[in-house]
Nucleic acid binder design. Structure first.
Lengths: 335, 335
DNA sequence: CAGGCCGTTGCAATCGTTTGTCAATGTCTT
DNA sequence: AAGACATTGACAAACGATTGCAACGGCCTG
């Protein structure tokens, strides 16, 4: 009748001590089957469940993993970005499978303490960061002291934090080489290299251009990731091109490439005839653009699994290295 | 040097009592500016932050909102579904703005206790459920006792739980009427009516057919939401149509509509000439199909804001009604 | 100069669990 | 029949903060 508020109420009701109730509810072998069943019956009947916060405090673990999206270089960008969403969904599936919940934080790291605040709050058992943004140094600093931390993004020599991601440099190189093979000569790279992954893709792009003797013909257009504003920017950029304008676009992401394709439509430019366009990620949207987008595939499902796997290894005390996945060229109709 | 583990360590270090430290860190006016500054300086220097779990236990609030996606009728469906993802991103943005975190759970409610487990775990200050699935009864039962709970989905007379969503019946009616106006006579409804929203859309669809004297010409095809399997199913369904087959599809969601369009391509059927197709939701993907998808727009941004707003009103003790938004016909090129 | 008041700080209870220790009970062996 | 031994469950100490209340000192005022 009276609602059961805590384990002591239930103990009174069952005529035992709180400790016994706790053990009974946890199926401890120290409690006889008879009392255990009796206590569990009462709990079931009153729909009682022990308070998780108190348990967390006592046991020092929470059953939750924090997923953080730092938006250092893109204050306007929303979590709703398709890449984040896709990654987030995959992580949620993978963590749920292991019985963990997922605590989501979107953070604009103006405060340099953003990461250690999450790490030392005791609210999560581990942290997954999606994208290094321009915070690689902060990540390294925290990773040095806080073990259960893995990052989606690029890997560089000597990096402290454990990362999972594709070989961005190679991916950028493959993308650019493909564009050149398709006849592009004057190429623009669309993307903001303040994010490490993107800087690496640009690096690969430069390498491919150099290898073809086209170094002079590469333009960099650091467009924003926010779809709404980028569209107008891209239209302006393309409009400013003279008659010897660019004939190829290496986009740092499918989202950017898709914006570029739409901008081209409004300028009556046609892909691939006028400008060849290639994206990066191979998100579902790459199959829905018009024309369908050639891109560099990152295996996000494998990536999410790797992130979760490495994280739990680190929680378990293991010390494991970064994981770099091979990028793969997907040719569709935009190149 | 010695790491500070808790407020007492810091108290010893500062030569004060733990209580004073707690107040100082919380900027309590009871503490003199001098001691407060001294204590905060030590905390900053050692990068110390009070344990959130302990605070939650004491204050009985967590600063987190649970977002749950019940997949009652679709065990295969993943969180990665574009609708969920979009909604989730919007909620995350809106909650972050209010300083709350978001605890994500994907749940397959085989266990009827799924909801009250979340509600009574004490881990969240409130609950947002995305979609009633086939769990409307469970939702009503829990909502009767647990106040801070709001649901995205359909509203029916006498419903206990507080919901936010578009007028699904009207939306279905508008969509169907539009198809009829465009010349469709033999219409199929694609969607699984076990979910309440979808049942309401179907009801509207039936009403519009009846109003046009076409009741006999409505087919129901309860396709799954999972994109991968639905495609083959839809191809089969369309293939089984004779020469007097359907000439209109009312899809219960944009995702389904987009699958239908792809299935039509592989059967050399053309929209809108052979079959007119209309979706529901107006997700970003509706603008990226070929041809672009006519659909019924739900203002998801407004919806997410309303969900969060109502939730906090309920947390504050207010008792507020469901919120039904008007659906809006968006005509593109598929009808 | 004494009494009262105010601004600061310390004390200790509390939130709801988990879990190590230990007493009490009952069973089995010799 | 008595001691060894296993069960069983009670007791109480954590976990790490918050917060009402009491106490303390200094200052002002009459």
């Amino acid at each position: 009748m009276g609602t059961i508020r805590n384990i002591s109420d239930l103990a009174v009701m069952a005529g035992v001590s709180p400790g016994t109730v706790s053990r009974a509810l946890a199926d401890s072998p120290l409690i006889s089957a008879k009392t255990r069943e009796r206590i569990q019956a009462i709990a079931r009947e009153h729909d009682f469940r022990p308070n998780a916060v108190a348990r967390n405090l006592r046991t020092q673990r929470t059953g939750a993993i924090g997923v953080v999206i730092p938006l250092g270089h893109e204050t306007g960008q929303h979590i709703s970005d398709p890449f984040f969403m896709t990654m987030l969904g995959l992580l949620a599936d993978s963590l749920t499978e292991r019985g963990y919940d997922l605590l989501l934080s979107r953070i604009i790291p103006s405060d340099p303490q953003w990461l250690s605040r999450m790490a030392s709050s005791g609210r999560v058992d581990g942290l997954i960061i999606i994208g290094q943004s321009d915070q690689a140094a902060t990540l390294d600093a925290v990773a040095a002291r806080y073990r259960p931390l893995v990052v989606w993004g690029g890997h560089v020599e000597g990096q402290v934090h454990c990362s999972v991601g594709s070989d961005n440099r190679l991916g950028g190189e493959i993308a650019t080489a493909h564009l050149i093979a398709r006849g592009a000569r004057r190429i623009a790279f669309f993307g903001d290299p303040r994010a490490r992954e993107i800087a690496q893709r640009l690096e690969g792009c430069r390498a491919a251009m150099a290898a073809a003797g086209l170094s002079h013909a590469l333009q960099l257009f650091p467009t924003h990731l926010v779809a709404d504003t980028s569209h107008a920017d891209i239209v302006r950029f393309l409009g400013e091109q003279g008659k010897d304008g660019i004939d190829g676009i290496v986009a740092a992401s499918d989202v950017i490439a898709s914006s570029a394709l739409r901008a081209m439509v409004s300028l009556s430019l046609h892909a691939p005839d006028d400008i060849r366009v290639i994206g990066y990620d191979d998100l579902p949207i790459a199959r829905q653009t018009l024309p369908r987008l050639s891109t560099i595939r990152q295996e996000l499902t494998a990536g999410a699994d790797a992130l979760v796997d490495l994280l739990f290894r680190r929680i378990g005390g293991e010390d494991c290295a970064s994981f770099v996945m091979p990028p793969k060229l997907i040719v569709r109709h935009s190149t």
